Simulated scan of single mutants.
Amino acid sequence: MKPFVRFTTIVALLISSALCEDEKWTSIFNGKDLDGWTPKIMGKALGEDPQKTFIVEDGAIKVSYANYTDWGSAFGHLFYKAKFSNYKIRLEYRFTGDQVKGGPGWAIQNSGIMLHSQDPKTMGKDQDFPCSLEFQLLGSGNGVKSTGNLCTPGTYITMDGKVNKTHCISCKEPTRPLGEWVKAEAEVRGGKLVKHLIGGKVVMEYSDLKLDGGDANAKPLIEALGGEDLKEGYISLQSESHPVEFKNIEVLELKP
């Protein structure tokens, strides 16, 4: 091997090694219980989940409706304790079973990872969704043909160089069958850029994250922040009337 070739090979290996060392993923779900996670169910106080919507079984967080007789508009979110700004989150999800009685048709095999969520302590008791950016996860049973979409409760973004206030924006990644585990990942760069990935492939990209001054839930947050820029927030998992499971939930914090 020539000296120059040997040198460039060594440099490449060193760079590769450094990058691997920087990627220190941290598990934020221990696979045993909900330590570090807090539920917020519509109509209930923070931390109250009397029907045990969020449970842990077989190493997964399960959204369960075993104790429900009717949906009752019990939109729910399970919040992780820490706030993040620049980070990646990855997990696996799958839909199981049947939707609970009374659930809306659009919520069949429908859930999501809420990014840059507002602090759950600031949510109203009867608030259905936190102001956030929803990385929407869908199954094949609701008529919608794509997963990895974006919904924007109390927020808006820029896409393809244009401000876009459409509430839900679809991508082109096909949904997966009921019961199949799917790998989902999001890369969040403060308030500047977000990417959604399904199966390791980027399926959605948007920028310039904002709270929407026209939304009643977002208004007090904007006043508290002194502006619309959305640069950080909490991660939460959604319960929206169809059983869903999440496992292998990890976060990688990134440099700004």
Rank of each mutant, 00 (worst) to 15 (best):
V100D: 00
S111M: 11
P120D: 06
R90A: 05
G102M: 00
G97Y: 06
W106H: 14
Y93P: 07
V100M: 11
P120L: 04
D126P: 04
N110C: 13
S111D: 09
L91K: 02
M123W: 00
L91Q: 11
K121G: 08
H116Y: 05
P120V: 01
E92D: 15
S117M: 04
K121Y: 04
I108G: 05
T122R: 10
G105T: 14
M114W: 08
Q99S: 15
G97Q: 00
K101D: 15
L91E: 05
F95S: 00
M114H: 12
S111H: 08
G97N: 10
K101W: 10
D119V: 04
D119K: 01
Q118K: 12
K125M: 13
E92T: 07
N110I: 07
P120T: 02
G112I: 02
M123A: 05
W106L: 14
D98K: 15
K121D: 06
G102W: 04
Q99F: 08
I108K: 14
Y93H: 02
S111Q: 10
N110Y: 14
D126L: 04
Q109L: 09
D126W: 06
G103R: 03
L91H: 08
N110P: 13
K88W: 09
G105F: 02
E92V: 07
Y93I: 01
D119N: 13
M114Q: 15
V100E: 06
G103N: 11
M114G: 06
E92M: 05
K101C: 00
G102T: 08
G103T: 13
Q109C: 10
D119C: 06
Q118I: 05
P104M: 11
N110Q: 10
T122Q: 11
E92F: 03
K121E: 11
G103F: 01
Q109H: 12
G102Q: 11
L115T: 00
L115V: 07
Q99V: 12
G103L: 07
D119G: 01
I89A: 03
R94L: 08
G112Y: 09
F95P: 02
